[in-house]
Design a protein around this nucleic acid. Structure first.
Length: 192
DNA sequence: CGAACGATTAGCT
DNA sequence: GCTAATCGTTCGA
């Protein structure tokens, strides 16, 4: 039991390639001010990746992607939604992981209030939904993930992960860098 | 300086 | 399945 608890509270290593970290994050726990759950869907983006915000180099928007790993990159999507990414690899590279969905486990009442929605399954089943549920805004852009308000705890061993093409992009559509927890009911979409 | 375009979602057909 | 909503960022002229 002690062994299991220790493993579950381990921090996540963000130093790897985006696709490695994205897979590693499936089953990890994400909390923002004590609210959150178990990550069930991620996508990897890299500097050498036409679909990535970092593809054309540093800009005003994506500067956090080129900062140190283990920090948040928050961007506004379609002028409406806030999306949360974890910067990985190494400083200056421009790699990140988009958090696309998690299974709500903590602060559920708070998330339901923020979303104006009861259905657990639809509460955080998409990057914009999860941003709204966690009250993510640009003031978290560049913030360290190992400090308040964030807590990111490593997944237990033996998590079964599935992979497939990323969603909502128009370039590099064949790259299988979307990862999910096998059989989860909390995904934004099914895996083919 | 203007215009096109999203790493999306909710709501309607 | 299709589309409006909505606005900051990016890129070409």
């Amino acid at each position: 039991m002690i062994e299991k608890t220790a493993r579950a509270l381990r921090p996540v290593d963000f130093a790897g390639d985006a696709q490695v970290v994205a897979r590693r994050l499936i089953g990890a726990t994400l909390l923002v001010d004590g609210v959150g759950g178990i990550i069930v869907e991620t996508e990897a983006y890299d500097r050498e990746d036409p679909a990535s915000h970092s593809f054309s180099g540093p800009t005003v928007r994506n500067q956090a992607m080129f900062g140190p790993p283990g920090r948040a990159y928050v961007y506004r999507s379609y002028g409406i939604h806030w999306c949360l990414n974890f910067v990985c690899r190494e400083e200056g590279h421009g790699a990140g992981v988009l958090i696309r969905a998690f299974e709500p486990t903590a602060g559920i009442a708070r998330m339901r209030a923020m979303r104006g929605l009861d259905d657990l399954r639809l509460l955080c089943s998409g990057p914009g939904k999860l941003g709204q549920a966690l009250s993510i805004t640009s003031n978290l852009n560049g913030c360290r993930l190992d400090r308040q308000p964030f807590r990111v705890l490593a997944a237990p061993a033996g998590v079964e992960v599935v992979a497939g093409p990323r969603i909502g992009i128009s370039r590099a559509m064949e790259v299988p860098w979307r990862f999910g927890l096998a059989g989860s009911r909390f995904l934004s979409a099914r895996f083919g």
